[in-house]
Each structure stands twice: as structure tokens, then as C-alpha cells.
Design a protein around this nucleic acid. Structure first.
Lengths: 212, 212
DNA sequence: ATTATCTATAGATCTATAGATAATGC
DNA sequence: ATTATCTATAGATCTATAGATAATGC
């Protein structure tokens, strides 16, 4: 009752397949920074009839927007499942950060979409931002982080995270886990944690990476 | 002999005026994230004949690329002039950071171009990046910053800087100087400076803002 | 019978260029 | 005489839609 089964019948499943093919093609082009492709090229890449595009989206912009949104949503729901195990908000923050850095090696293309979409992701009230805000505020109230304008903290941590993802993208052979943990450590230090506490939070074992 | 005078004659000056009008229009559209405008719209906004476009640029992409490059170049030359007064590399870094945050209030449109261009600015070997790398490495060697992979440091500081600029853009009434200094303080802490030293570097008086 | 997909296409838009016009140099 | 700008336009490309086709539901 609460939620429909994934697809009600064969027509709906086919419809969803087409839609996903379009979103996938959009992600592919966005990950290459090619937002100027024609709808024709998109439907070709999706292996879908040209007219089908308009069964699902009103415009290219709408498709691209949904493509970004879907990435943010899928990933942040996954995150929620993972961090449900932790109580300390500082640890939740650290685990999220460490998992997200590692994500670059799992879905480099998806990450590239975000990287190309500019800093404005940090203003979207969906995805990791609202979650990071909650974690940071809670950690501040718990005395784990120094007091600081939460939005500043988000911009600092979010910017550093995006920078890390960009660096990992440019260095395919680097040790992603080590670099990510180093960056997490630095961000925790930036938030006023002492060395030992920051060290501890960035050296605990992580839950296994979920497959996407 | 070393460098030509700004413009040799009237023809050259006119040519440059046209070119600058096109670059200005490109910046305007890029600052609005509208990279899909037609060349026609660009020449209209520049108040320039349509065909003139091709006297100066081969394609829209080339124009946009030069528009971004020109912003980076103009700003970083200005920075070089300012920081020439300082010796301590950590102070050079701090002053650069603090001036750049304040820049958002001076040329919000130019900053918006950078914000829309995505994280890839942090990979460009022009503009602030190579300068920041030199400063960071020098500060590490001088023992002012903790040792750290310089590229990681750049991504962390650059990401935080872009995040700050994005926040300032979204908060036109906020105290840009105060927020910028707070962010600078945090970044210095991230690089391992102690509170007192970081405090000192972010509370010194800045040289007067140059007009652009 | 219903619904989504696909193909074909009209009309709009966009790019690149040719040739005319205007401004400046010599 | 030279050089840049401007206007006009051919041809290419792109979008949005109409109508045909294919798949599924009942």
C-alpha cells in the first residue's frame, strides 16, 4: 500500500526501461561535460526512438536536471542505510565523507556528472547537503566540532570533498582510500577536532562498499 | 620593445573593442550558466555585427574558454602585484585567500563564471592554482604548514574557496570580510597551523582592494 | 482497446560564409 | 589601399509533433 511495486505491469516496466536508457545517456554526456548534445544524439545513445524522448521529458534541461537529481538521490539513500549503524554525529559525518571519496572508484562517471555541474550542487537542498548539515549541527551541539556557521562548514567540507573527487578523477592510479582518509582527517581538523580524535575517526574500519 | 603599447593604432583599438565586447557578453551569459545561447544572441548582447564574431573566434567554445581564461589571468596578475609585498609564504597564501573572498563583492559576475565552470578550474595550470601550489610548498618547507600532498592541499583549499564564493554569492547581505577571514582561518588550521598563528594571519590589515 | 514506441517531416533556429559597407592608414 | 565590421543568406541542424507501428492488457 505504502509504495507501489517497482513496476505494475509489463507496459510500465518497458516505460521505465526507456526512461532509464534516456537518463543513462544523459549521464554519459554530462559526465563528458557535453551538455550541448542534440536530443537526437541522446536518443541514439539510449538506443531509443527519437520521439520517445517527449514521452518522458519536456526538454533537454529537464532531462539533465533529473539525471543529476537521480544520482544525488540514489547515493544519499544508500548513505542513509550505511550510517544508520552509527550514533556519534561526528562519526556519521566522517563515515559519509570516507565512503563518498571511495565512491569515485566505484562510479567515476556518476561522480564526473557532479563535478561538471559546478558548485551549485552545494546549494541544492537534496542529496548530501541537508544530511551534512544535520550531522554538523549535531556534532557541534555534542561538542565534537567547534561552533561555526553551519553553512560555512558545509561549503568548506563540500568544497574539499568535490576537490578530492576531482583529484581522484585525475589520478586513476592513486590510492583512493588513503587520499580520502587524509582529506577526511584534514576536514575534521578544520572543524576543530584534536589530532587524536580525528585520527581515530579516520582509521576505523568501514562497512563494506555497497554495489550500486 | 619588450611589449607593444596597448594598441598600435585606431584599427587595432577598434578591433580590441569588438573582441572585448564579445568576451564581455560571453562572461555575462556564462555567469548566468547559459552556455547554450546562440552566437546571434552573443553578438546582439555585445552590440556587434553577427559576422564579426568570426573575425575573432572560431567557435562558441573557444570564446567561452577565452572568457574564463581572461578572468583567471587578469585576477592572478592583480594578485601577484599585491602579494609582492609579503615574504612569508604562509602569509602570501592567507592574503591571497582573503583578497579572493572579498573579490566576490567586487566582481560577482566574474566570480559566477568561475562557479559555473565546475571543479575543473582546479586542474587548470593557470590562475591561482600554480600560485597556490608554490605558496603551499614553500610554507611547508618553511615549517609553517604540516607536510601534505600539495595537490591534496590545493584541492582542499581551492574547494573551500569555491564553496566560500558560492556561499557569498547566495548571501548578498552577509559580511563578506568576516566570513572570508573565518574560512581562511579554518583552512590554515586544516594545514596544521596552531590557533594563535592562524588567528594572527587572518586578522592583519589587508592592502586596499584594487579596482578592476 | 490501450499505451508506448518509432519514423518521418515541417518549421524554426543556428552556423558559417560571401559580399557590401564603413573606417582608417598612408 | 587596407582592414574590420556589418548585412543577408544558403545550407545544415535541431526541435516538436503527427501519424503509423508494435506491444500489452483485458
Amino acid at each position: 500500500m505504502a509504495a507501489e511495486p517497482a513496476a505494475r505491469n509489463r507496459i510500465d516496466r518497458r516505460r521505465e526501461r526507456t526512461r532509464n536508457a534516456l537518463l543513462g545517456a544523459a549521464r554519459k554526456f554530462l559526465s563528458e561535460g557535453r551538455s550541448a548534445v542534440s536530443i537526437q544524439e541522446i536518443t541514439d545513445a539510449a538506443d531509443v526512438g527519437f520521439g520517445s524522448f517527449y514521452n518522458h521529458f519536456e526538454s533537454k534541461d529537464q532531462l539533465f536536471d533529473e539525471a543529476v537529481r537521480s544520482i544525488l538521490q540514489i547515493y544519499s539513500e544508500m548513505r542513509d542505510g550505511i550510517v544508520a549503524l552509527y550514533e556519534d554525529p561526528a562519526e556519521v559525518f566522517a563515515v559519509s565523507f570516507r565512503m563518498t571519496g571511495r565512491l569515485q572508484r566505484q562510479i567515476p562517471e556518476g561522480v564526473r556528472v557532479i563535478l561538471h555541474s559546478g558548485m551549485s550542487v552545494l546549494l541544492r537542498e537534496e542529496g548530501l547537503v541537508p544530511r551534512a548539515r544535520r550531522d554538523i549541527i549535531a556534532a557541534q551541539q555534542a561538542g565534537r566540532f567547534e561552533p561555526m556557521d553551519p553553512d560555512m562548514a558545509i561549503m568548506a567540507a563540500g568544497g574539499a570533498l568535490l576537490g578530492l573527487l576531482q583529484l581522484l578523477d585525475a589520478r586513476p592510479d592513486a590510492n583512493a582510500g588513503a587520499l580520502t582518509d587524509e582529506m577526511t582527517f584534514r576536514v575534521l581538523r578544520m572543524f576543530g577536532m584534536n589530532k587524536r580524535a580525528a585520527q581515530k575517526l579516520t582509521s576505523t574500519e568501514l562497512p563494506s562498499q555497497p554495489q550500486l
